[in-house]
Design a protein around this nucleic acid. Structure first.
Lengths: 146, 146
DNA sequence: TCAAATTAGTTAGCGTAGCTAACTATATTT
DNA sequence: AAATATAGTTAGCTACGCTAACTAATTTGA
């Protein structure tokens, strides 16, 4: 009992630090897309989760409606998403990624992931395998979390 | 050769996603400190790495000098850091964390890490162990990565 | 030695991204 | 029909990133 907790704390500390520094490195690839991380992330939700209302998108991104309103406005201005009226409720908007949006997402995602993968291939097969197990665990943990 | 690369890509993808979502969760603890992540991170560098000039601090945080200038100004206004003149070079400033700054950092860090650790202790010992190995690997990888 | 170049940091001004409060417009409930 | 609730926007604040242009101090080197 007094054995697990300090260990979890130590892992939490290093994991937190690693997440911060890892994102700081891959974020450098983003400038090439011309869009910021919040827009790319929202676009990703639309591409992989299908059309959404503004409120749903805000909830998915854990952000308040006014924030998502501006993110969507930026994406729409650049024609990466298309906004249509909900036929059942005139208050709602239906937001969907355009083909252009899907292409942007694929490009940006590919660049970030490839920059990271270029580092990962320097690892030994064992190390990569350990990392693979860890991301599976993290994926499950994050799904349960909130 | 065509075996390692796609695997690294898959791990990179999930790792990237996990880092984004993990930070989004722990960041919620930050509001209680009253300071943003960039200030807390810079303060952390000062606490664990000792006094620094503005340029050194900017380099450590991978940020441009004007950005760090504003971060330091905010920390100084709240008396979390103390700025003194370099006796050898009047252009330079020596920035050090105050006792108040150290206390804030410890508080904020503790809250974020504890929120994360509270999730990690739900894992099995094996899973926690896998995660422990992964963060060690990531730590080394990030050190080499510019 | 003294003018030119370099270096440290700031200021001004821009964009993105987060928030709350207050607003409009539409739906729903009573 | 009026009151209430819901969806989204607007206005205005803060933080945090950048570049360009600036001041002040130090080095360089002719």
């Amino acid at each position: 009992m007094s054995q697990e907790y300090p260990d979890a704390l130590a892992v939490a500390d290093k994991l937190h630090s690693a997440a911060i520094h890892l994102l700081r490195r891959v974020r450098k690839q983003d400038v090439a897309t011309g869009e910021g991380p919040a827009r790319l992330s929202a676009l990703s939700v639309l591409v992989f989760g299908g059309p959404k209302t503004l409120k749903e998108l805000a909830a998915a991104e854990q952000v308040k409606p006014p924030t998502m309103s501006r993110i969507v406005a930026g994406l729409a201005r650049s024609r990466f998403v298309h906004i249509s009226n909900d036929p059942e409720d005139a208050r709602r908007m239906n937001i969907r990624a355009t083909a252009r949006g899907i292409r942007l997402l694929q490009k940006g995602r590919r660049m970030r992931i490839e920059a990271l993968a270029a580092r990962l291939i320097r690892l030994s097969p064992d190390e990569l395998n350990d990392l693979g197990k860890a991301v599976e665990i993290l994926g499950r943990l994050l799904q349960e979390w909130c």
